[in-house]
Amino acid sequence: MTTSPKTAIVLGTGLGQLASEITDRYEFPYQEIPNFPVSTVEGHSGKLIFGKLGGVDIMAMQGRFHFYEGYSMKDVTFPVRVMYELGIETLFVSNAAGGMNPDFKIGDLMIITDHINFFPEHPLRGKNFPTGPRFPDMHETYDHNLIAEAEEIAKEKGIKLQHGVYVGVQGPTFETPAEYKMYRILGGDAVGMSTVPEVIVAHHCGIKTFGISVITDLGGFDVPVEVSHEEVQEAANMAQPLMTAIMREMIARAESIEAHNKEQFNTAHPTEEWKSQK
């Protein structure tokens, strides 16, 4: 059995159950894939899955890699490079995050509209890959058309969505009260230990990206709240049905969104080929 996916999804902490809806599937444990790291975090299964979701060919990472596990940024983002070589054009990323925005509640879903990169190593550091320019523009890192599609789907399904800036940090410690306050002052709405490296490399490759966070804990307020990894997983699992509903429908519509992006590009660049930009 073969598939030709144009869409990939990275399933984060407590959100891997979407993989159970993939049909006609075949999967590869990370340890069986040459040069792939192996996830060491509880709740991250460690499989690369190919199949269909809502009738759309899809590639899914069930479990991701983190800088705090000791991997280099090249290791962390290696799967995105593989996605590019396999022809992936749209990437969906999800994560669990701590909320600093006072309007947020545990269990909220936050569309990532932008990010702040606090990782100590940049994923594009070193020799430039020919997939993109040496100094890539980052003005629309999270695709506006995909965000609009998510908003429409959420409205149709009566799902409340938050919007905000995701702060990417190395971990593995959760943030101190002072750090939560600092990130909030700097413009962050939620903070987590993943996503930013993968998104930067995907953007460098010309892959359209959509990101969404489950707010699993809160910080930076007057009353400090302790948090554990188990509580993060529990909160993410409780929010999973809403996340799954949005992701499932977005992936089903992904091909039409990509066709719209292609039409927009060809209208603006009538003498250039869409694929040459990929």
Rank of each mutant, 00 (worst) to 15 (best):
G99S: 02
G99I: 00
G99M: 00
G99T: 00
G99R: 01
M100F: 02
M100Y: 00
M100L: 10
M100Q: 06
M100H: 01
N101Y: 00
N101P: 01
P102R: 03
P102C: 05
P102E: 05
P102K: 05
D103E: 11
D103L: 10
D103H: 12
D103F: 06
D103Q: 09
D103G: 09
F104E: 00
K105D: 05
K105Y: 00
I106A: 08
I106R: 13
I106P: 01
I106V: 15
I106Q: 04
G107S: 09
G107E: 11
D108L: 12
D108A: 13
D108E: 02
D108W: 14
L109A: 12
L109I: 15
L109W: 05
M110F: 11
M110I: 08
M110P: 06
M110S: 10
M110Y: 04
M110L: 14
M110H: 01
I111H: 03
I112N: 02
I112L: 08
I112C: 04
T113M: 05
T113G: 06
T113P: 01
T113N: 07
T113C: 08
T113V: 14
D114P: 03
D114I: 00
D114R: 00
D114Q: 10
D114A: 12
H115Y: 13
I116N: 02
I116T: 04
N117T: 03
N117M: 06
N117S: 04
N117Q: 04
N117W: 05
F118Q: 07
F118T: 00
F118R: 10
F118W: 12
F119G: 11
F119D: 04
F119V: 06
F119S: 09
F119R: 13
P120F: 10
P120Q: 13
E121N: 08
E121A: 15
E121Y: 08
E121P: 00
H122K: 09
H122L: 09
H122I: 14
P123R: 10
P123S: 08
P123H: 08
P123Y: 06
L124A: 00
L124C: 07
R125E: 12
R125A: 14
R125T: 09
R125D: 10
G126H: 11
G126V: 06
G126F: 08
G126W: 14
K127V: 14
K127I: 15
K127T: 13
N128C: 14
F129S: 15
F129E: 07
P130I: 11
T131C: 12
T131A: 13
T131L: 03
G132F: 14
G132E: 05
P133L: 12
R134T: 12
R134H: 13
R134D: 01
R134S: 11
F135L: 12
F135S: 03
F135K: 03
F135C: 11
F135N: 02
P136Y: 08
D137R: 13
D137V: 14
D137W: 11
M138N: 11
M138R: 03
M138Q: 08
M138W: 03
H139A: 15
H139R: 10
H139T: 12
H139E: 07
H139G: 06
